Amino acid sequence: MSHRSEQGQRSFGDIAPTLAELTDRVLFDQVWQDPVLSPRDRSLATVASLIALGRAEQLPFHLRRARDNGLSHDELAALTTHLAFYAGWPAAASAVTRLRELKDEEARS
């Protein structure tokens, strides 16, 4: 694999260096690079899981990654609406807040 992630190191390497190393080398350099699933499919699964589990703090990073991996705002909004029926309205409402923040961020860019 030619690309090596440093996201974990940047995010929390100073506090939890082993977690940062596992995040970079296993999660992002191995799991995310496995060609069995496309990056788009991995993003769709990851965002759905984060919404369903109510992990709103992790959503901004993964929503941006999902956009980079080819998911549109409309697709992410449709995913969020779909999950409201399976994961609950509060989880979907929290995700919409994060999706709005991303849309605003992209509009300013």
Rank of each mutant, 00 (worst) to 15 (best):
S5P: 02
E6Y: 11
G8W: 08
Q9S: 04
Q9C: 07
R10D: 12
R10A: 07
S11F: 07
S11L: 08
S11P: 00
F12E: 09
F12S: 03
F12L: 13
F12C: 04
F12P: 01
G13M: 00
G13V: 01
D14R: 14
D14F: 02
D14H: 13
D14Q: 11
I15R: 13
I15K: 12
I15L: 14
A16Y: 15
A16C: 06
A16T: 13
P17T: 02
P17R: 03
P17L: 07
T18C: 00
T18Q: 15
L19S: 11
L19T: 13
L19M: 12
L19C: 08
L19K: 02
L19R: 03
A20K: 10
E21K: 12
E21I: 05
E21F: 09
L22K: 04
L22N: 03
T23L: 13
T23V: 10
T23A: 08
T23N: 12
T23W: 15
D24V: 08
D24W: 13
R25I: 09
V26S: 07
V26M: 11
V26G: 00
L27W: 12
D29F: 11
D29T: 11
Q30V: 10
Q30Y: 10
Q30A: 08
Q30P: 00
V31A: 14
V31G: 03
V31H: 09
W32G: 00
W32P: 01
Q33L: 09
Q33M: 11
P35S: 08
P35T: 00
P35Q: 04
L37S: 00
L37Y: 13
L37R: 09
L37N: 04
S38V: 05
P39F: 04
R40W: 09
D41I: 02
D41T: 10
D41K: 01
R42F: 09
S43F: 04
S43Y: 02
S43T: 02
S43V: 01
A45E: 09
A45M: 08
